[in-house]
Amino acid sequence: MRLYESVLIARQDISTTQVETLVDEFSAIITNGGGSIKKKEYWGLRSLAYRIKKNRKGHYVMLNIEADSATLTEYERIMGLNEDILRFMNIRIEEVSEEPSIMMQAKSERSERGGRYNNNNNADNASAEKTSEEA
């Protein structure tokens, strides 16, 4: 069993709840393979630096996973087949950091400044946190 960090980008047109069901689907593959989800973060609908499959924005989700390589390969295969997933990257990490990643920190800073768009982000934030507690 090894630790991995997985980031996936979902299509811009799907809703937050759809993203969550997608992520649950993928998490099930890991847990069925004897692994576990250590951390889950929803970074929100971020604008992409360049277009991917005609999308200018994407839902970013980061998972920290403990799994063996066979399970991870299966996880990657399923994700590659899913058309709602624009891109994913899984890298090996040595340890799962306890505190939220820099993305979440940056986002909370931004939402402090206020604004309509950021309030939406906050709602997403809250729901993401809730799911991570459940997991």
Binding site: I9, Y50, Y60, R87, M89
Partner: peptide
């Protein structure tokens, strides 16, 4: 890695 995930541009 950041470029691959479209967090940063390849060319800007």
């Amino acid at each position: 890695r950041a470029r691959f995930l479209a967090l940063m541009p390849y060319v800007d």
